[in-house]
């Protein structure tokens, strides 16, 4: 077993924290962090969707925007959307949509804005966790919370929640980044992405690690929502 830089065990997440109500103007908002990765999300809506031809008379639609603040990374990110941020926005939207029930809000849009204040790998998964909390906080009808984490593999070892130094790991089969999202504590996956090298027969290890870690994430999210009205 590889010694992780942080001294974490293979299945150990970085310390998490979560809080709702961080953007008072929004209909719902939340902060979620994995170690040094900090994401904030705000939900506005349901509200009017422009242009009108994008409206769906059978349901409200979800629109997600993910981006890094320019000083969240060492090499300053130029302001404005990139191909990367547009892809992450889209997979985040797909990760969240399965839990939402927007039929009550025909022709409207629910806007989710996700910004990364500080990036140390796992930004999309922290962003999904924050967005899931913000949607719940906004009172949007939802089947469940969405819990997300970047799982992966360092050489031969399956590990949870890679940090930046692990994403840059060079040795053996190198790093594999396998971000996933699950619907609450159940068995359904709503985000699947992968970069690296992993054998098909090892995916079952990822599945069981997803189960263990998402349960912990769920508890952190649940606690944050319950603390909103103390």
């Amino acid at each position: 077993m590889i010694q992780r830089n942080s001294g974490r065990k293979a299945d150990e997440l970085r310390p998490m924290s979560a809080k709702v109500g961080v953007v008072p103007n929004a209909d719902g908002s939340a902060m979620f962090s994995f170690g040094d990765t900090v994401a904030i999300a705000a939900v506005y809506g349901p509200r009017q969707l422009h242009p009108q031809h994008m409206q769906d008379p059978s349901t409200g639609i979800l629109r997600v925007n993910y981006d890094l603040l320019s000083f969240s990374v060492y090499d300053r990110k130029k302001p404005g959307p990139s191909r990367r941020s547009q892809e992450i926005s889209k997979v985040t939207q797909w990760a969240l949509e399965p839990v939402l029930d927007l039929k009550e809000f025909p022709n409207t849009v629910i806007d989710v804005q996700i910004y990364i204040l500080q990036a140390d790998a796992g930004t999309r998964t922290a962003g999904i966790n924050a967005a899931s909390l913000a949607l719940a906080h906004a009172g949007i009808p939802m089947k469940n919370l969405v819990c997300s984490v970047a799982l992966g593999k360092l050489d031969q070892d399956i590990v949870a929640d890679l940090d930046k130094s692990e994403e840059d790991f060079e040795g053996g089969e190198g790093p594999t980044d396998f971000p996933i999202a699950k619907i609450g504590t159940g068995n359904d996956f709503s985000l699947l992405q992968l970069d690296g090298k992993i054998q098909p027969e090892r995916v079952k290890e990822i599945i069981s690690l997803a189960d263990v870690t998402c349960k912990q994430i769920y508890e952190v999210q649940k606690k944050a929502l319950k603390e909103a009205f103390q």
């Binding site: 953007v23 929004a26 506005y44 925007n65 804005q113």
Partner: peptide, 14 residues
């Protein structure tokens, strides 16, 4: 540099 992010207010449009 800086930007009015749509996170900060419902008035800010993309």
């Amino acid at each position: 540099s800086g930007d009015l992010l749509p996170i900060a207010s419902p008035r800010v449009e993309m």
